[in-house]
Amino acid sequence: MKKKGVKAVIPYLYFLPMAILLAIFVIYPLYSLVATSFTKWDGLSAKEFIGMKNYVKAFRSEKFWYSMKLTFVWTLLSILILQPVGVLLSVIVEYVVKRRRASGVMRVLFFLPMLMSMVAIGLLWQLIYNPSLGLLTSVLSKLNLIDIMNPPNLLGSRSTVLAAAFIPTIWQWSGFGMILTSAAMMSIPSELTEAAAIDGAGKFSQFFRITLPLLMPTIFLGMTINMIGAFKGFDMLYAMTAGGPANYTTLTSIFIYKLSFTENKFGYACAVSVILILIVIVFTMIFNAAGRKIDERFT
């Protein structure tokens, strides 16, 4: 009887390495995050319990709301732009370009920026946007579109910095959207489009009436991935603008980092982190529910 009990436990040992590391490095920090969010803490001295004060402070802080607004805009741009551009690239590579070799080469080239770390991307685009020596200034002035004596500083002014900072993200992640879409396109049985072709459907209507609906779950999946990535959006922005000029690109993630590691307001930063993860959870749940609906409808 006892032997049987021991035997039933053995399979659970397979979870042990993961369970230990998850407990120490994910679950305990998560608990600690919530606990610290109710305290005043400079990172060194003892934590002082202050109840909900950090949360009240956040909701009354203009900087907090501004970072939230930026995060929301950044996330919305990521959801709406990255995957559709990827689909467009995929259509070009798989449909418009006829020669298979050319398609292969283009797939590799469009995917290339995905190999760079987001930090490297941020640094490279810093050089591209440099008002006096950047690639953009030189190209635009050669085309006579700007005055070389007075070049725009896209990363330096409030009105342009967010758009300018977002373009490298498109540059990098559209290649990912393309790969995702192309993989899904290849799994569509060719009988479907062939049958439509026999019925007299042109390439255009084949795509819009058969391929695109079948791609919808994948497109939505790409959007979900970009949504999650946008909430993280730290590396590239921090390397490129460090949240500036002023705090015009200080997304909530950068706001948290600055609060803790330059201002030593660890308790407050924890409260903002808790708010952020709650928002991420809500968004993820909405997207998962919508994803299930789309899966049901289109497959």
Binding site: L22, V26, P29, C270, L276, T284
Partner: peptide, 20 residues
């Protein structure tokens, strides 16, 4: 349980991890 932990990113728990 394992899957639900996916919403936790490094950024969210950066401060407690740093202290740990």
């Amino acid at each position: 349980v394992i899957v639900s932990l996916q919403v936790v990113s490094g950024q969210i728990i950066l401060i407690p991890l740093f202290a740990l």
